[in-house]
């Protein structure tokens, strides 16, 4: 198992043998190619450096968790993966990120955001019906018949484990749903675009334990179709859902390894201090 350190100038080989579920080629993706290959990524808000020489590989069809104390750069890192940071003025990223084998910084932004879906810390459904929320992305992308849209809505809501709860009120407002349901709706909205990767930025931070459990369950269920990167404050959550975990501290990636290694026998002192609750 390769341990990728933040300071390592070259990427270690991605280890193939016991990596995640059996990868077969569906929808034309390169099987076995990592979802993201990040090397020497630096990120700046104005003059403040928020990420410092980050290098790691995020494998396809597994769940990768990013943990660390507030302000450590884990959310910033997540937002470089679909260039969401470009919404904020005065930001700059250097280094390289490959999405599969393409340079992420030269992919058309609209295409990138469709391939790399995202759900946010606060559930942010549009003040429209449940149906319209799920079809919002696809509708802007192209023409779909009513039947196609209905199928897409059902499929996306099923994958987001929300279908049974909302199938009788698809045309009611999304704002009438509970917080947990809204968050799953936002995940369904992202899934409707059939993304290769789903980024989750602390998706459960505002939810109760039962809603959180439902989201964790659906995250694990999504692994067979896309790679998932989740930022979380909750270490138990990372341990429960993630195959791999990266620990960030002050803009650096301190340790990145299988979750079992990170949570049971971390190699770095900082990681151990953090997961045992000595700080952070």
């Amino acid at each position: 198992m390769s341990l990728i350190m933040s300071a390592s100038p070259k990427l270690p080989q991605a280890s193939v043998p016991d990596m995640g579920p059996n990868l077969t080629s569906i929808d034309g993706r390169d099987p076995g190619k990592p979802a993201f290959s990040v090397s020497n990524l630096n990120f700046y808000y104005g003059t403040h450096q928020a990420l410092d020489e980050i290098s790691l590989m995020i494998e396809d069809r597994i769940v990768t968790a990013l943990i660390g104390p507030s302000g450590c750069g884990k959310s910033t890192f997540l937002r470089t993966l679909n260039r969401m940071y470009e919404v904020v003025p005065n930001t700059r990223a250097t280094g390289s990120i490959l999405l599969r084998s393409e340079d992420l910084f030269s992919i058309d932004l609209t295409q990138l955001r469709r391939r790399v879906g995202m759900a946010f810390q606060t559930a942010n459904p549009f003040p429209k019906s449940i149906f319209d929320n799920v079809t919002y992305g696809p509708k802007i992308q192209g023409d779909f018949s009513r039947a196609e849209l209905s199928d897409l809505v059902e499929e996306s809501l099923r994958r987001a484990a929300l279908w049974d709860e909302v199938k009788d009120k698809l045309h009611k407002s999304a704002l009438g749903l509970s917080g947990g349901q809204q968050q799953r709706l936002c995940i369904a909205r992202a899934l409707a675009l059939k993304p290769e990767v789903l980024l989750l930025d602390e998706p459960c931070s505002a939810l109760d334990p039962i809603s959180t459990a439902k989201i964790e369950e659906l995250i694990v269920g999504l692994k067979d179709t896309c790679a998932i990167v989740i930022v979380t404050h909750n270490m138990q959550q990372a341990a429960r859902v993630a195959d791999f975990t990266g620990f960030f501290l002050m803009g650096k990636l301190i340790e990145f390894d299988r979750s079992t290694v990170i949570f049971e026998k971390p190699k770095r002192k900082e990681t151990e201090d953090y997961i045992t609750g000595r700080f952070g």
Binding site: T110, F120, F126
Partner: peptide, 13 residues
Amino acid sequence: REIKEAGYGLGLE
């Protein structure tokens, strides 16, 4: 901001 981000996240320009 969250609502706008939702739009950007879906690939809207």
